[in-house]
Write a protein that binds this DNA or RNA. Structure first.
Length: 198
DNA sequence: CGACCGATCGTCT
DNA sequence: GACGATCGGTCGA
């Protein structure tokens, strides 16, 4: 079952970021489904400096100002396509960066996209790797998360606060004080969470 | 291990 | 013209 639109339209981006843990993120490209379970997310709100939309709308972040339930994909460092979930209602730019998955489906296809020989933790660990493995690119910006090509599924898995770790976000030093916000969430002990042993 | 570095380009100032 | 919501490799201790 795909997550319903209502899921994304709620106000509290932190709540949604936590609830996305355990959900399935999949793409269907050229008839092949690839994807896995979300194990790590980061919340971004226009109210804090870490967020691309903090200083208002630009060409790049325009889609964050749309109603939730769509994808925001942008190019980072000229190399990596980073995938975000847009949440909240029109004109209230919130987004959730998906930082890591546990591979579930189409592993062969994901290995091909990433030029890997066999499955290891690096396949879908880290936001750049997630997008590469699933074939997500900036052209997918604006696509509905209930679409056929790109969607988030709910198999009923929910994690409790006890199983979720909150920590500061990665790579947002430029946000000053807001870099300290514990807006990064991951499933405790999951081996695909970024930043641990390779 | 940790620190550093190169790749690579669209976006914003 | 500078700089990333990154990654993987290399180098030195």
């Amino acid at each position: 079952m795909k997550l319903p639109l209502d899921f994304y339209l709620r106000r509290n981006v932190v709540t949604i970021a936590k609830q996305l843990l355990g959900k399935g993120l999949f793409t269907k490209i050229d008839g092949q489904i690839t994807g896995g379970m979300i194990v790590e997310t980061e919340a971004y709100s226009y109210k804090e400096k870490g967020c691309h939309a903090h200083n208002g709308m630009t060409k790049r972040n325009e889609i964050m100002f749309a109603d939730g339930g769509v994808a925001y994909v942008y190019l980072c460092y000229g190399i990596h396509h980073l995938f975000n979930v847009v949440t909240n209602n029109k004109d209230i730019p919130h987004a959730i960066l998906v930082r890591a998955l546990e591979p579930l489906k189409g592993i062969e296809g994901m290995l091909l996209r990433t030029n890997k020989e066999k499955l290891d933790f690096s396949l879908t660990k880290g936001p750049g790797n997630v997008s590469k493995a699933l074939g997500i690119q900036t052209k997918h910006t604006g696509i509905s998360l209930l679409s056929k090509e790109l969607y988030i599924a709910d198999d009923g898995t929910n994690y409790t606060n006890k199983q979720i770790v909150a920590s500061p976000r990665i790579g947002v030093d430029y946000a000053g004080k807001d870099a300290e916000l514990k807006y990064r969430f991951y499933i405790k002990g999951n081996l695909y969470v970024s930043g641990k042993s390779k």
